[in-house]
């Protein structure tokens, strides 16, 4: 009975979130298709539909040149759902497979950037909580904020310039046999700091921990001599981090577009840029949909973690 009491809200939350995810993915796919359908460049869509309908059992009567919106959308969505994203126009390889390869590289970049931000900002926020001086805190956060007000690519150039001048070293180039952590370092640092992630984690965590430690039940528990670390961790660190992650993950993907461009990182962001330039529609669409899917999965997971830690949240 006890287990049921926990499982029920969680499973309900999972179902709800899953439903929302499917709905959101559908809305996005739909709006993307609206854009596509009403684009001034009509042959682009026709060629694309022709390509994806090639290896599908299609109704012979379909006239792809003057297809109406509904049947075009149905054609497209069935192709997409059956995993058929067409072939890239520029190199003729299956679009989705390529996008996935690139996506894995981006995920590793983002993963390390998030890790690094945690490594930097958690001790930082501990420091802020500890000596509790509003002025230093303000100046510190303003300074960090200013860093994120510089355009990201300029910041990257500056860092490369400085690392060249000061350390006489340029640790950025990937060399397949020797590919090591150095290759990861600068892009990861820039992504963590330049996108403001470090700052936000610091601010949120220190604010939340302070707020929670002033709550009545914590004061009460501490007066009783009970350990409050678990509560503090849950409410002060885990929750804000999870919320932050699900709110900022899309923004991080946006920032990687710039970072990957500069550091020659073979990720989805660079792919998106290249395909936009060459109007490689099949590859662009599969990259966009994959990006949305990955972001949605991350948000879903963080929501699940939230519910697991705090089953009460499933009602919200």
């Amino acid at each position: 009975m006890v287990s049921w009491a926990i499982i029920k809200p969680i499973s309900r939350a999972i179902l709800k979130e899953l439903g929302a995810t499917v709905l959101i993915l559908f809305i996005i796919a739909f709006s993307v298709f609206i854009l596509l359908f009403y684009s001034p460049n009509e042959d682009m869509l026709t060629a694309y539909l022709l390509m994806i309908s090639e290896n599908m059992p299609v109704n012979e009567e379909l006239d792809l040149d003057n297809i109406d919106f509904t049947s075009a959308f149905i054609l497209w969505i069935t192709a997409v759902l059956s995993g058929n994203f067409g072939l890239s126009l520029s190199n003729g390889l299956p679009a989705m497979q390529q996008s996935i390869e690139f996506m894995l590289n981006t995920i590793s970049l983002i993963f390390f950037a998030v890790l690094l931000s945690l490594v930097i900002s958690l001790p930082f926020s501990a420091l802020i909580i500890k000596n509790n001086q509003p002025i230093t805190q303000k100046i510190l956060s303003f300074g960090l904020n200013c860093l994120s007000f510089f355009p990201l690519f300029w910041l990257a150039y500056l860092v490369i310039f400085l690392s060249g001048r000061l350390f006489d070293h340029f640790p950025l180039v990937q060399q397949s046999e020797t590919s090591g952590a150095i290759f990861y370092l600068l892009p990861v640092i820039l992504l963590a700091i330049g996108s403001g992630l470090v700052l936000e984690i610091t601010q949120q965590v220190s604010y939340e921990v302070k707020r929670v430690s002033k709550e009545d039940y914590i004061i009460c528990a501490r007066a009783k001599g009970a350990s409050v670390f678990r509560h503090l961790f849950k409410e002060g660190i885990a929750f804000p981090l999870l919320t932050l992650l699900s709110n900022r993950i899309a923004y991080l993907f946006g920032a990687t577009i710039i970072i990957e461009q500069i550091f020659n990182w073979p990720g989805i962001g660079r792919l998106l840029w290249q395909t936009t330039q060459s109007r490689d529609l099949p590859l662009l669409l599969s990259a966009v949909l994959l990006t949305v899917l990955v972001i949605r999965i991350v948000q879903f997971m963080s929501r699940m973690c939230y519910v697991l830690i705090n089953p009460r949240a499933s009602h919200e």
């Binding site: 501990a126 909580i129 500890k130 090591g180 670390f229 503090l232």
Partner: peptide, 29 residues
């Protein structure tokens, strides 16, 4: 009390990760 605990806990973790990073960097350099 809780601040100290928090801090110690993380200092360990952080120094571990940082030294790991540095070691990796040296290795690849």
């Amino acid at each position: 009390y809780f601040n100290k605990l928090l801090f110690n806990h993380h200092r360990l973790l952080v120094s571990g990760i940082i030294s790991g990073f540095i070691a990796l960097c040296l290795l690849s350099a």
